[in-house]
Design a protein around this nucleic acid. Structure first.
Lengths: 338, 338
DNA sequence: ACCTGCGATGTTTACGTACACATCGCACGG
DNA sequence: CCGTGCGATGTGTACGTAAACATCGCAGGT
């Protein structure tokens, strides 16, 4: 292995001067710098990350925790986060945490493997998360927030999103409206439900319990829940789903019963994943500005790494209803009493 | 920060004994070990990864390079790879390399940030890849192989997969068969095409140039290419697509023209991503054993990290045709001359 | 011509861990 | 009863870098 000492010897300078060139310090004469750079190239020198980290206590690496990478929303978010991190000169370590919620990511943070963590799927039950935040570890939440947690958070106004969908569906004449709720824990799911439910009630069409199905964030569960819902005597004329993956499942549930979207039932999703715009689904949904959000989260996290005592900030981005074919045409009040 | 020295002081032993306990060395008396473990807990000690890496030259981290994480195949592969790495006690650093093909991943390898690299989307043009392999860097290819490269590779028999599709389509009576080719560079796309093309020729129905569309691996390109193909005077009765993402694009292209799959045209994909089994697509495709492949790739890579001089191995897994609704029923020779 | 001051470079050291080697003590055999 | 050997533990050091401090030389002012 070639070390900075070897380069120094080759260039006829001290190791420290090599180190200075490496860091782009201005305190090096142009001629010397050129000599050192030439020696680096000649020897094929590569700085050793571990040694540098040991001295500087920086890894230039951020850990990102995701609950389920096969939910297409997360790859899209990861791409945006990866881009934002790249722009900031940081690498990304990925934890796809099936259930535990990133315990090993927190360990990595304690060990100094990463400089900070970005949780995209935090919940109240994420073990050790609150504890790590209290210890002052640089942790930021992206996408899913946590009300009780005093750390940097970047979210969207999921309550407003849910309300917008309620306004839209009631405004287009629907009265018997179904809801495919997500899991209980994620704040995203809870806020969307709250906004949707409250606004429906305000508009005089409160959600009817029999038309609410609880389930996970998976296609399969949503599909079978929708089959149940649509097989009822008085099926809903529109179904709002806690996220796009479940909305796609809802469409497929309808398709599997030979029903058509939107002719027989309207479907609305949430997140605007790429597939929602594909012809086979053409799904009305709510868009989050994930690129801006990712940049904001990275900015907050890096700022916290530099200054652990700065006050935590919560940034909430607006979201936007995107109307597509899954809610086209007029609703079908004719289907009310069969 | 609590160091092993602090723990040693607290436990009344030397720093070395703490280190030994940490490594699970047997050369520590049970009583001593208990005292050290208690001191660790009490002090909240966390071993420092950078210092350990500096001594051991190991990071227990593997870099994974992916070309496009928004192609749903890669999240599925990443999940499998992540699981295999987790089982082997390794972390995963992710590079989503838009174009450059993982140059910065190779830098990280040189710097010692990762112990090895797993390329899932290598091509001949991946800059620096061949060079790094020749320098003996631990690099393995998963999914996409590279014929000229002397390194560990885990692939599927894409030629056989292409042939199987040709056999299937001709065997079910299709003669005017279209092909949506992937990009030129990936070995996966090339091998699938070769197998498909050669077998069709052997069976007496060579691929007709006008029915071949070249494009990328994206939904949009595939969609518009399919619209062109199906708008011809003599459209194909079946279309084989270089991967599932393009097959979904092909289905959507057909849908956008008001055509039905499989009634108007059969569509076959490749990779068996989760969405292919959803009702709206129900796509016939070719399945790769990605879990087994991931484990194999991780095993090979870790073995190489331990012994850089071991001979490179190439493991080729079989793939399996999965027939679904996109190729159901009889083909439509009636559509031949319109 | 001499002193001052600053820019350029060198010297020393520490970061936290694990390896090589040294040492200690005790059990067992002759 | 003493020597041998081995298991348990300690001592010293090196990994490669960057920070703090020291030093050197030269330009500019008086």
């Amino acid at each position: 292995m070639v070390t900075s000492r070897d380069v120094a010897r080759l260039a006829g300078v001290s190791q420290m001067t090599v180190s200075r060139v490496l860091q782009g310090s201005t305190k090096v004469a142009a001629g010397t710098r050129d000599r050192v750079l030439a020696a680096m190239r000649e020897s094929g020198y590569q700085p050793n990350a571990a040694a540098r980290t040991m001295r500087t206590r920086r890894t230039a690496t951020i850990g990102v925790v995701v609950a389920d990478i096969t939910n297409p929303f997360y790859p899209q978010l990861l791409e945006a986060v990866g881009r934002a991190l790249g722009e900031a000169g940081q690498r990304m370590v990925l934890w796809n945490a099936p259930d535990s919620g990133g315990t090993s990511a927190l360990e990595a943070l304690d060990e100094g493997t990463v400089d900070g963590l970005l949780f995209t799927t935090a919940t109240e039950t994420s073990p050790g998360l609150a504890d790590a935040v209290e210890r002052g570890q640089p942790i930021a939440l992206l996408h899913r927030g946590l009300d009780g947690l005093d750390c940097d958070q970047v979210t969207t106004d999921n309550v407003a999103g849910g309300r917008a969908v309620a306004d839209y569906l009631v405004g287009t004449g629907h009265t018997r409206i179904g809801f495919l709720a997500g899991p209980d824990l994620p704040a995203t799911a809870r806020h969307r439900e709250r906004g949707f439910r409250d606004r429906l009630a305000e508009l005089g069409h409160p959600l009817a319990d029999p038309l609410v199905a609880r389930g996970g964030f998976s296609h399969d569960v949503a599909r079978s829940a929708t089959r149940d819902l649509l097989s009822r005597q008085d099926p809903p004329t529109a179904v709002f789903c806690a996220n796009d993956l479940t909305a796609l499942g809802a469409v497929d549930g309808a398709v599997s019963l030979g029903k058509r979207v939107p002719a027989d039932v309207w479907v609305v999703g949430y997140d605007d994943i790429a597939m929602t715009s594909w012809d086979s689904y053409d799904l009305t949904t709510v868009r989050q500005p994930i690129a801006d959000m990712s940049r904001a989260a990275v900015r907050l996290l890096l700022a916290r790494i530099d200054d652990r005592d700065r006050p935590a900030r919560v940034e909430e981005f607006p979201c936007e209803l995107v109307v597509r074919g899954s809610t086209a045409g007029t609703p079908q009040p004719s289907a009310v009493d069969t």
